Simulated scan of single mutants.
Amino acid sequence: MTNAIAKNVDEDDLADRVIAAMRMHSSPSYPRAFEVWYAHLSGAVPALSTELQHVLVGGGSVGATVIDGLYNRYMGSEHFAQKASRTSSQILDEIATLTHQINEALDASERYHGEISALSEQGPASADRPMLRKWVETLVLATRTEVASKTKLELQLRDSAREIRNLRDALETTRIEAQTDALTGLANRRHFEETLQQCFEVATSDGIPLTLVIADVDYFKRFNDDHGHATGDQVLRLVAHTMTEHMVDRAVITRFGGEEFAIILPDTNLNDGKLYAEAVRQALLKRELIKRSTNEKLGRITISSGVAAYKLGDTPTSLIERADQALLAAKRTGRNRTVTQDAIIR
């Protein structure tokens, strides 16, 4: 009992230290940030602690970009993999139990039919009333046992089926969580990489167009420094929401990392990809950001975008590099604009 109390006290103390550290370093206050700081202060993930300590010593900001990077590198994959593994194991155990129950029911049913067959062959003459009564009583008892067994099995099967459904839903939730960015609700970098690879295979085999847009929020670091990380998070959610509102068929919008977003556009050529990126940029210009805590008007958010289209011989890496080069060209030429690969190909 004493050890359990001591453990609870230690955990409460650690939680208090985590909250204090998050406040001290103006860290965002969503669950992923708490997990990262908890892992650091508890010493559970040494590599994460080393990198975070380097940021702190260097006087760097511990905002959403740093938090998400640390989480994805040191915690995300392992965390969700463990959850998925546990849930999968539970499903397999439940299926094994279900199979055992069915086999037991089949064995009981075979015994019942064997008993009935034996009773039929040994049935007494109708004139032998005492033996006839005993025969009927044995038959009734065997039937009642079979009915009870079937009723029990039905209840067990219903319970098992419900448990398997719950576990399957939990596994699906874990799968979605593993592919979703916690802050924006968009697909994350892992989902982006998987989807881009799939789209590449289709583009290569079937010759279907494929376009990639990489967008970056202009002056995001300055915005974070001036208004705080909570408002910076609000900016990222606003951009994500605007992109989602203007999403075209089959588009996959992802948070690429930090203040960068990547949009995969299957069956879309370069010009249409630019039109889509421009539609999002123009939509953002019509929205004024208001700080929720003070109702202060903070101005409008702008983004720069680079657009690249698949060409024969491309790899996912080469396509990303071209889109990124186009994005850099957009930033060098004044930001708040969309540039395609044509502007950088000589």
Rank of each mutant, 00 (worst) to 15 (best):
A4R: 15
E11Q: 12
D13T: 15
D13G: 14
A15I: 11
R17Q: 07
I19W: 11
P28V: 09
Y30W: 07
Y30V: 12
H40L: 14
H40D: 10
L41M: 06
G43C: 04
V45T: 11
L48I: 14
E51D: 06
E51V: 15
Q53N: 14
V55R: 04
L56V: 15
G58S: 08
G59E: 06
S61E: 07
T65C: 08
G69A: 08
S77V: 13
H79L: 12
F80D: 03
Q82I: 14
Q82V: 14
K83E: 08
T87V: 15
Q90S: 12
A96G: 02
T99P: 01
R111C: 13
A118Y: 09
A125T: 15
S126W: 09
D128F: 15
D128M: 10
R129F: 07
L139N: 07
V140D: 00
T143C: 09
T151H: 12
L153K: 09
L157R: 09
R162Y: 09
E163S: 12
I164W: 01
I164Y: 01
R165T: 15
N166H: 10
L167F: 10
A178R: 05
A182E: 10
L186T: 06
H191Y: 09
F192K: 02
E193M: 10
E194Y: 01
T195C: 06
T195E: 07
F200L: 07
E201D: 10
A203E: 02
S205L: 13
D206P: 00
G207Y: 14
G207H: 14
T211E: 05
I214M: 01
D216E: 01
F220T: 01
R222N: 09
F223H: 04
N224Q: 03
D225M: 06
G232R: 04
D233I: 09
V239R: 03
H241P: 00
T242L: 02
T242P: 02
T244I: 02
H246R: 11
R255V: 12
E260F: 08
D267Q: 11
T268L: 09
D272M: 11
G273F: 05
K274T: 15
A277Q: 04
E278S: 09
A279D: 10
L285Y: 06
R287F: 00
T294G: 02
E296N: 02
L298P: 00
V307S: 01
A308N: 03
T315A: 10
I320K: 04
I320L: 10
D324V: 07
D324M: 04
D324C: 07
L328K: 08
A329I: 05
R332V: 10
R332Q: 12
N336F: 01
T338K: 05
T340H: 01
Q341W: 03
D342R: 09
D342L: 11
A343I: 04
I344Y: 05
I345F: 00
